[in-house]
């Protein structure tokens, strides 16, 4: 058995490792995806090497932001341990690492996807460079939002004073808060990537539809982030709701279960929402006259796709408030 002080101190190192360990996965996949499509583009038109590599570099730099968020949280966890570390702050540190690391997976991958599509587009339509790059940058930047939710949750878990919260079942609430936002953000990040990639492809194909395509992309990406918001909401409840002291295992497990419910429950719908929006964006670019009907269909499709994440949210709320 390890003593409480050792566990508390070690948990900050574990939290730091989780933050950058998971965080690096998404950025690496996103950057790799961009570079892979850049290679595909170069194989089709080697004389465009300068322009493609330049765009790849910009796309990768933006995709790497998610990993830099994770690095910041990891370094804060590793080097700024409070003088008095309690079991509760120890679990908060692990929760913070999970919130940041997991959320950066989706954003890192998602923000690399439009970069790859832009490399492909520049080869097909070099005269349309400005619009392609603008859409790429907007898409990549918006896809970072789920990681920002993760970072906010991580900082709340690191810097808030939890001295008034009982350690039991508080530890499970802190861990659940990290998992709630972190897991849910994976789906939104990846889903946003699908939407942004399709928007870049669409604008490459039909620059005249750039305005409608970008608008629909932004609507689709915003709605696609709702599952992350549900996860974030559950995390906030777990952090701020306030629980009476209860040393039973079931009291802790219901709070952990709340985080897991909204977290896992957000992954599939997050990706699904991105696919719905990607489909709408793709066809608006091909047939601009159908923008109205496609927007309506997209929103209806998203509402239905989102329903499973709402079930998960309801279960989380029941676990926190009712049981």
């Amino acid at each position: 058995m390890i003593d409480t002080a050792t566990f508390a101190s070690a948990s900050y190192y574990v939290g730091g490792g989780l933050a950058i360990g998971f965080g690096a996965i998404g950025a690496a996949l996103g950057e790799g995806y961009t570079a892979g499509l850049a290679s595909e583009a170069l194989s089709q038109k080697p004389e465009s090497a300068g322009e493609v590599v330049k765009n790849m570099l910009v796309g990768q730099a933006i995709a790497e932001s998610a990993a830099i968020f994770a690095l910041v949280v990891a370094i804060v966890l590793l080097f700024s341990q409070p003088e008095v570390v309690t079991p509760l702050t120890a679990w908060s540190a692990i929760g913070a690492g999970l919130a940041m690391g997991l959320s950066a997976i989706g954003s890192g991958l998602g923000s690399g996807m439009p970069g790859g599509a832009a490399c492909r587009g520049l080869v097909r339509q070099p005269g349309n460079r400005g619009r392609i790059q603008t859409t790429m940058l907007i898409g990549s930047a918006v896809a970072q939002t789920p990681a920002i939710f993760g970072m906010v949750t991580a900082f709340l878990l690191i810097f808030l004073d939890f001295s008034s919260i009982p350690a039991y079942p508080g530890w499970a609430a802190m861990l659940g808060a990290g998992l709630g936002t972190g897991l849910a953000a994976i789906g939104s990040g990846v889903g946003n990537g699908f939407t942004a990639e399709e928007a870049v492809d669409g604008i490459t194909r039909n620059p005249e539809a750039a305005k409608d395509t970008t608008r629909l992309m932004l609507i689709g990406m915003s709605v696609g982030q709702s599952t992350t918001i549900y996860g974030f909401l559950v995390s906030l409840l777990l952090i701020f709701f306030g629980f009476a002291e209860d040393t039973s295992l079931s009291a802790a497990m219901k709070l952990l279960g709340a985080g897991l419910s909204s977290g896992f429950g957000g992954i599939g719908p997050g990706i699904g929402l991105g696919l719905v929006a990607a489909g709408a964006v793709k066809w608006v670019a091909r047939n601009q006259e159908t923008t109205g009907v496609l927007t309506r269909t997209m929103l209806v499709g998203m509402a239905v796709t989102e329903s499973t994440s709402i079930y998960a949210l309801i279960v989380s709320l029941l676990l926190i408030v009712v049981f």
Binding site: A24, A28, I68
Partner: peptide, 18 residues
């Protein structure tokens, strides 16, 4: 490249905390 660059990016953060 990733290892080297992330190690480098950690330097100013550590400095600011110290």
């Amino acid at each position: 490249s990733i290892l080297l660059r992330f190690a480098l990016l950690a330097v100013p953060l550590v400095v600011s905390l110290r």
